[in-house]
């Protein structure tokens, strides 16, 4: 269990993060420069927050209110750096054994052996970091971090330095390892695919603040802010005013598109006149030819004109111009 509340003022950038993580793998997702790594550094103590609190399982690691700031070595926080920070003058086993405390050499050796097996590093024990591949380095670093018996695991873009193929394999490895060592874990990434593969719960950070934290489904299908929607790959985001409330739906007025019906979002109640953003995922747009009879579909029907198609991998994006009588110039994209 990890509880954080962090405040840090930097030139032109403020971090304001409150988050609670159970014995789970939480993905901290956000664009570059959102403050993801900084949050991890404040948890592990590399960077001192201006104010706030960091607590692991009811032990306070940092609390500006009561003047607690545990030194890094006493925090028992495992921090996997983006480029692994392996000690270049030590072999794989020496690196792994480095953080094992206590005087019992046999036990330490056993632990190192176990981690070498779990991390598929057998045969590489005597190699130096510069003689390892990217994936092997990453697994060595993870083994070294786990060997010290951390209560919290922080992973800073652990796959960013690896090839695509290696990445796939190692993501699966990581989930496996997290099953074997179920430690509260925070994984930082700017890769959406990675976020969804690894985190049941995702916290979306932007510009130093958490814009939404929730389950995969929540974040993906019910983004709370325009930015979260944008990060989730939604391409059609519009602004409008609430025109009316109809039970579980609300009607939004957009000057270009017209009246649009949308399900009521969670959170505080909305009243007519409120400015809102609304969006639709490309794959949720249904294209109906003009000569087809409209069946059950009655809401949100727009007349559009295809202005172009853009191939993009397996998905084809078409740009449409929407509006009652093609009078509008606003365009949006969807998947056809």
């Amino acid at each position: 269990m990890l509880d954080i509340s962090l405040r840090k003022r930097l030139p032109g950038f403020n971090v304001e993060v409150d988050l609670s993580v159970d014995e789970e793998l939480l993905v901290l997702f956000g664009p570059s420069g959102a403050g993801k790594s900084l949050v991890l550094k404040m948890i592990s103590g590399i960077v001192e927050p201006d104010a706030g609190r960091v607590a692991v399982a009811n032990e306070t690691l940092f609390d500006s209110g009561i003047g607690v700031n545990l030194p890094m070595r006493m925090r028992k926080v495992g921090h996997l750096f983006q480029d692994y920070a392996l000690f270049p003058h030590m072999t794989v086993s020496e690196n792994i054994a480095y953080g094992i405390g206590g005087g019992n050499k046999d036990e330490a050796r056993k632990k190192v052996g176990e981690l070498i097996t779990v991390m598929r590093l057998s045969g590489l024990e005597k190699r130096y970091p510069q003689e390892l591949s990217g994936g092997q380095k990453q697994r060595t670093a993870l083994a070294r971090t786990l060997a010290a018996g951390p209560r919290v695991l922080l992973l800073d873009e652990p796959f960013s330095a690896l090839d695509y193929q290696v990445r796939e394999k190692l993501r699966a490895d990581l989930l496996n390892i997290h099953r074997i060592y179920p430690i509260t874990t925070v994984l930082v990434t700017h890769d959406l695919e990675e976020a969804f593969m690894l985190g049941k719960r995702i916290a979306v950070i932007n510009n130093g603040t958490i814009e939404q934290a929730g389950t995969q489904e929540d974040v993906f299908y019910r983004p709370l802010t325009r930015n979260v929607a944008r990060f989730m790959g939604v391409r059609n985001i519009f602004s409008g005013k609430v025109a009316a409330l109809e039970g579980a739906h609300l009607v939004i007025d957009n000057p270009d598109i017209g009246m649009v019906k949308a399900p009521l979002p969670p959170g505080p109640a909305l009243s007519p006149g409120t400015e809102v953003s609304f969006c639709i995922r490309p794959e949720e747009i249904l294209v109906i030819r003009p000569d087809r009879v409209l069946g059950k579909v009655q809401d949100n029907i727009l007349e559009c004109m295809i202005t172009g198609t853009v191939g993009r991998g397996l998905t084809t994006y078409s740009t449409w111009t929407a509006g009652g009588q093609y009078r509008q110039r606003r365009s949006f994209q969807f998947c056809a």
Partner: peptide, 27 residues
Amino acid sequence: VGSELEDAARLLGKTELQVITTITLPL
């Protein structure tokens, strides 16, 4: 000797003196 290596050592439970003798000086 990058501060990241030294921070890594600190996070693995080492004191400042241990960081100096096992990481900084050998490197």
